Amino acid sequence: MLKPVIQEEPTGCGIASVANVLGKTYSEMKAVANAMDIYAEDKSLWSDTQYVRGMLSSAGVETSPDEIPFESWGCLPDLALLSIKHHQEAGKNFWHWVVFKRQEGQEFVLDSASYLPSNIRTDFDEMQPKWFIEVMNA
């Protein structure tokens, strides 16, 4: 049974998403992130892609070099980090990180937000991704 990682801090979606990809707990991934000078309180974690890329790279996981514009759910690779809930603060873009997975023909999103009734989401019409990062060899 798939058990999604829930973020333990309001701004910990990037850390939780990487934990979901790598199969780690939130506290394990937070320790790795902190050792890399990455902290959930740093707003850059959800306004800059280099932090999640760095955490994945340190585990030997490759990502697409660029953010790829979202076209449709069917066009996504089998594993991707998605940016949803886009908004701006003081002219800077921010988003919420989630993980898209396609496994045995099933498509779902692992959303680490603690307020959700279920963190395995299939309500695709409710999420409006702007772009994604393909995750390879995870």
Rank of each mutant, 00 (worst) to 15 (best):
Q103G: 00
L116N: 04
T49C: 09
Q7T: 07
F108T: 02
D111Y: 06
L110P: 04
K24N: 12
M1Q: 11
V61T: 15
M29F: 04
V99I: 15
P10G: 06
D42V: 05
F100N: 02
E107L: 01
L22I: 08
V21A: 04
A16F: 10
Q7I: 05
E9W: 06
K43D: 13
G105Q: 08
K3Y: 10
P129I: 02
Q128D: 10
L81K: 07
Q50W: 10
N34Y: 07
E126W: 10
P10Y: 05
E67W: 05
A31H: 12
A59I: 02
L116Y: 08
Q128W: 00
S27N: 13
Y26P: 10
R102Q: 12
T122D: 04
A138C: 12
M36I: 00
F108S: 04
L22D: 10
K130G: 12
S58F: 00
A138D: 09
E62T: 10
Q106I: 09
I120W: 00
F94W: 11
A31F: 04
L79I: 11
E9N: 13
L45E: 09
A16K: 09
V5D: 12
K43Q: 09
A40E: 15
G74V: 01
S118W: 01
K43W: 13
D66R: 12
H96K: 05
E41A: 13
S47L: 02
F124L: 05
W46E: 03
K92N: 11
A35Q: 14
G12Y: 05
N137T: 12
V61Q: 11
S83M: 13
D125T: 11
K92M: 08
N93G: 00
R121C: 10
E107M: 14
F94K: 12
